[in-house]
Design a protein around this nucleic acid. Structure first.
Ligand code: ZN
Ligand code: ZN
Ligand code: ZN
Ligand code: ZN
Lengths: 132, 132
DNA sequence: TATGTAATGTTATATCATAACATTTATGAT
DNA sequence: ATCATAAATGTTATGATATAACATTACATA
């Protein structure tokens, strides 16, 4: 099976993610009518589909929210960063080129063998920030 | 109460953190003899102490591990990054000066009102990396 | 068809975090 | 010292996130 061919459950969960306004937890996904309708009813089913999507680079996990988003430019191998609005949940995936190289430098200079970089920027989006 | 004066429970939990080899979850802290001995026995007690330590800048939460570490240079207001060994748990806090400014730029250029930056680098420390 | 592998289903349980409310302790004004 | 107040802590219950263990089904291919 190719890197971007999704299994049935992966397709269902991926559709849920791209339809969402922001990151979804596994249990939120499980609660969606769209997902229930397809017969998915156990958390593990969702987590397995999510794991597959993460492996294929089709989704990302937002660690600070214990939630998941569809990748906005899948599949990519460069590290991505996320701006997350703590009020409305709006989440934007961004390339972090300017940031990635210094971090890789810091890692390699200490002999650290880097696998993955998580960058999460928490704050208020331009809409929500206007009301403060 | 000054920013760096710790309450009784905060002192106990902070001592646990600085004695640890790597990040500890709240429940790991609760299990430590050092902590049990002091009579702390509910998760909430630990979480409250941790919240106090986070506010005072004496500890950090590692989002990808749901765990906590003592700050290595508290208190500081600049963002910090973490290198986390996925094998032995060794965690190193680093300044991320080279990285912070471009991220702030990206945020402000889109009108995002930035509160907090999480940077976590996952991989193998130099010790663990030798055995691969 | 026979056989092995990947995907999915099912049930139970482990792990992480907070709500609600009671009690105790520290602080500061009188 | 006494009292009023706020901060910290204790206690019990529950909510939210994640995985273990094992059974079954779908699918590829020899
Ligand atoms: Zn992506
Ligand atoms: Zn917003
Ligand atoms: Zn720090
Ligand atoms: Zn290591």
């Amino acid at each position: 099976m190719s890197k971007t061919s999704l299994t049935k459950n992966q397709q269902i969960v991926f559709t849920a993610l791209i339809s969402a306004k922001g990151p979804l937890t596994a249990y939120k996904i499980l609660d969606l009518a769209l997902v229930k309708r397809e017969g998915l009813k156990a958390p593990l089913t969702i987590y397995r589909a999510l794991d597959g999507l993460l492996e294929k680079g089709m989704a990302h996990r937002i660690e600070s929210l214990n939630a998941f988003v569809a990748c906005s430019s899948a599949p990519h191998k460069e590290a991505a960063g996320f701006m997350i609005c703590e009020q409305c949940g709006m989440t934007l995936e961004l390339p972090i080129n300017a940031c990635e190289e210094p971090l890789r430098q810091q890692a390699s200079s200490t002999g650290f063998h880097l696998h993955k970089i998580n960058i999460e920027m928490i704050g208020l989006c331009s809409n929500c920030g206007e009301n403060i």
